Computed example of a mutant assay.
Amino acid sequence: MPAASAISVLVVDDQLTIRALVRSGLQQLGFKDIREAADGEAALRELLAKPAHLVISDYNMPKLDGLGLLRAVRAHPPFRTIAFIMLTGRADTDLVQRAVQFGVNNYLVKPFTVQVLKEKIEAVFGALTA
């Protein structure tokens, strides 16, 4: 069981309010190392500066969208093992299939509860401890 406090997370969303909601949920679950980026390009710069264990990324963003970020993460050997959860307001089956094709680990539909966030993360990492 990994401790939530040992998992570093990068939250990527162009909306500050969504980043704040995800950060708050993660903090309630015991996560301590949480960084943020406003788009896919900024996220890649963050990951190059300091890799994360988990990326929670919105799909629809300017500059580089979530699928583009996922593809870039999976194409860069040092990042290939980073867990990736796609966050979106669209439960679009085509989008889900494309994300799965590019190696997404899980999918989170907005709006979400802290319990659902926990379940999606635990589906990737196993049961979390505080």
Rank of each mutant, 00 (worst) to 15 (best):
L95Y: 02
L21I: 15
Q27E: 15
D65N: 10
A6W: 00
R45H: 13
V114M: 07
S57W: 03
P51K: 13
V114H: 06
F102I: 00
L108I: 02
Q97F: 15
L16R: 15
L16P: 14
Q27G: 09
H53K: 12
V96C: 15
E41G: 13
N106M: 04
Q28S: 14
M1P: 12
N105G: 12
V22A: 05
A20G: 15
F79N: 08
V109L: 11
V22R: 03
L10H: 03
I82Y: 00
G40F: 00
P2F: 07
L10V: 07
T129M: 09
L108W: 00
A43V: 04
L26C: 08
A20V: 13
R74K: 13
V104Y: 04
D39R: 06
L64E: 04
N105C: 09
P62M: 08
Q115L: 14
M1T: 13
F31W: 00
P62Y: 06
A75W: 01
A72W: 02
H53T: 11
I7F: 00
I34W: 02
A123V: 04
I34V: 06
R80I: 03
K118E: 09
V109S: 09
G126K: 04
F31R: 01
H76W: 11
M86R: 08
A3I: 09
P78I: 06
